[in-house]
Design a protein around this nucleic acid. Structure first.
Lengths: 204, 204
DNA sequence: ATACTTTTTGACCATTTGGTAAATCAACGA
DNA sequence: TCGTTGATTTACCAAATGGTCAAAAAGTAT
């Protein structure tokens, strides 16, 4: 058998342990940031010994980079799905709601991402430039097209997208603060608020 | 002389060095988070030796806590200034713009705050509950009053405030990402966008 | 100048932390 | 059953890091 780029397919146990480690690492990195996370914490959360973790990953950094790479896909997906041929307001509101659902269902991922950007994206700038950049430009053009056609009210598409990111991810990233200020689950209120917000902003 | 709570007033050199240290620490903590920051980094940034820093502060934690306490005042100030007797839309838009200016002029403070909340506010939950909580409730009531009087369009005041925090701080906290996606200075565009956003949302 | 206080430093320490090496244990096909 | 490969652990290590301490240096008032 010729030695291609994927020399050997990972065994059952490899898959299981690697995903255990990544899940544990997501817990720890998202809660404490890169420097704040320790291999011991990850090991304990994964139910493995530290050297055993380093058997599956070459080091702390590789675990982190792997998480960020995997995350990028998930993270961009809702924006990818925004359909240029759909009804503009529906598409944008659906995008907002998908992002809000992600903030609720994947808060660890949101915080991992926020941590990374906060620190200046030392391990993600390439991904940002290569993956997010083109997608962002493409979708801005789509939205601009909708506005030029008079189907939604005109506004800077770039800042519109920023505002969607900010207002949705806020509920994951600043969860601690939000829950100090509102006692019950904030997501129902957030859904209603954001629906109204973007309807009033974008209705022509 | 009786020994009151403030035994001795700080000398000129004390004031100078303490503020040097705090400024350096703000740099380092905001860039790397609490765990990611080291006393050596702070010492170098402050132009002092590490033991000298520990002459002015009992430890890393005290520096961090001091920063957070000082920050809280600055941070709440724009909301405090929102005047119940003013013109509602003007007051809210002025609040948005003050927050946006803070994101531009005090990005280190914004990131320090964001880092702390992201990690679950381990050193700030008391401040949040005691200082921010009551102020938040008070201002929500003010806004609700404006809405009940029909002077601005009705919307959940709590999420309105969250959205203002999110959309303004985003430009400081996610600066790295923003600057990958828009080349020129984003703040002029942000100002125009947010003005339109909140005008359309709140105009009755 | 002198005595006294404040500030600064150099040399250390204990702990934590990312990472390694070699030995042991488990899986599994021939 | 045996041998080979894959998986795991035990015992370490070197560097980094928060912090201490006593001595030196620099101010400061008399």
């Amino acid at each position: 058998m010729p030695d291609d780029g994927t020399p050997k397919k990972p065994s059952r146990i490899q898959q299981r342990n690697r995903s255990r480690i990544l899940d544990a690492a997501l817990d720890v990195f998202s809660a404490h940031g890169y420097r704040g996370a320790t291999l011991d914490q990850i090991a304990e959360a994964a139910g493995l010994s530290k050297p055993n973790i380093l058997y599956y990953f070459t080091g702390k950094e590789e675990i982190h980079v792997t998480l960020l790479s995997q995350l990028m896909e998930t993270w961009l997906d809702p924006l990818v799905e925004m359909d240029a041929t759909g009804e503009p307001l529906d598409e944008l509101l659906a995008y907002v709601m998908r992002k809000l659902e992600m903030a609720r269902d994947l808060p660890r991922e949101s915080r991992l991402f926020a941590n990374e950007i906060l620190q200046g994206a030392p391990r993600m700038q390439p991904h940002l430039v290569q993956d997010l950049g083109p997608l962002f430009a493409e979708k801005c053009a789509v939205i601009q097209g909708w506005m030029d056609a008079g189907r939604i009210a005109p506004i800077d598409p770039r800042h519109l997208i920023f505002s969607i990111w900010a207002t949705t991810q806020h509920y994951a990233d600043f969860d601690t603060q939000v829950r100090v200020l509102v006692q019950d689950d904030p997501f129902d209120g957030a859904r209603a608020f954001l629906d109204t917000l973007y309807r009033r902003l974008l209705t022509p």
